[in-house]
Amino acid sequence: MSRVFDELTNFARARSLFILHYCTGCGAIELPPVMTSRFDMERLGVSPMVTPRQADILLVTGYVSIKTLKRVMLTYEQMGSPKYVIGICSCTVNGGMYWQSYATAKRLDEYMPVDLYIAGCMPRPEAVISGLRELMKKIEQGEANSWKEYYRNYDYYLGNQQHLFGDQWQTPVDVIGEAEHYGLVGDGTRGEHTALLEQVQHPLKPLEMRL
């Protein structure tokens, strides 16, 4: 019975995807044709959303500089699971034309689990649509579970983030607490990097009220 229910949810999940497009680079220019009348993505059930809480897909289009990556991480951690990450353009795959840049994160999947890459510089709207179809197929078969990897291998991802952002790096989201609550603790959840995080972490305080 629960298997039937799971299949029903997977079926609905694959057909209703809300995209949060984090448009950082030139790939963003290929998205308006995907949304509007030429390649209408709403007929696949994909529609744009504006806040991370409501979205299912985080679409990172183009290169992520180190400053931008901080914001991408904050956005990613606030999204409700199951969440999927799509990296568009070759910059998210291997750095692309920013390979030699000192300020750019080369590979997106060192910092967050990526479900799907759409390579190209830049990919055409047809490629974006076919990538979305690929993701929908994966979701319907129950294979798009990379969001669980973030909880299970949090130490690895946090280590890479600390390498870029410095040892003081922390986000408002308590990832280890969430992993414990949802029963997603794996071998790689805790490690030396999370130990470092626990040392430097200071609790979040409400902002001071001032007029």
Binding site: L8, T9, A12, R13, R15, G80, S81, Y182
Partner: peptide, 9 residues
């Protein structure tokens, strides 16, 4: 269905 089926709330 999808929104009520989210795994973390």
């Amino acid at each position: 269905i999808k929104l009520f089926g989210k795994e973390t709330q």
